[in-house]
Amino acid sequence: MKWEYLVVETALDSVALRELGAEGWELVTVVSPAHFVLHYFFKREARA
């Protein structure tokens, strides 16, 4: 199985998270490298 990844470096609300989920993206983790900064890491099965 192969995966593709997406990193989002802007704040996401519940609507944006639902839209990404509908596209098959699974939230793996959220990292805060600086104060008030969030990076969201997503994965989904690669589409051939």
Rank of each mutant, 00 (worst) to 15 (best):
Y5D: 08
G24P: 13
V28H: 10
F36R: 15
S32F: 09
Y40S: 06
T10F: 06
V31C: 08
W3N: 04
H39G: 01
F42L: 02
L38H: 15
L6H: 03
A34I: 03
V15A: 08
D13Q: 00
T10D: 12
K2H: 13
D13G: 14
R18P: 03
V8Q: 04
E19V: 12
E4H: 07
A34P: 03
A11T: 09
V7W: 01
E9F: 01
S32H: 13
V8F: 03
E19G: 05
G24R: 10
V15W: 00
V30A: 13
L17W: 10
P33F: 13
R47S: 13
T29K: 13
L27F: 04
Y5P: 09
F42A: 00
G21Y: 04
R47G: 10
P33A: 11
E9L: 01
E9A: 12
E26P: 03
W25D: 11
V28K: 08
V37M: 13
F42D: 01
R47M: 08
E26K: 07
V37N: 07
V15K: 06
P33G: 11
S32D: 08
G24E: 12
L17R: 13
M1L: 09
R18T: 15
R47I: 12
K43T: 04
S14K: 10
G24T: 09
F36K: 15
E26G: 05
L27M: 08
T29M: 06
A48V: 09
V30K: 07
E19M: 10
T29H: 08
V28F: 10
V7Q: 07
V31F: 12
E9W: 02
V15N: 05
S32G: 14
Y5K: 06
H35R: 05
A11K: 13
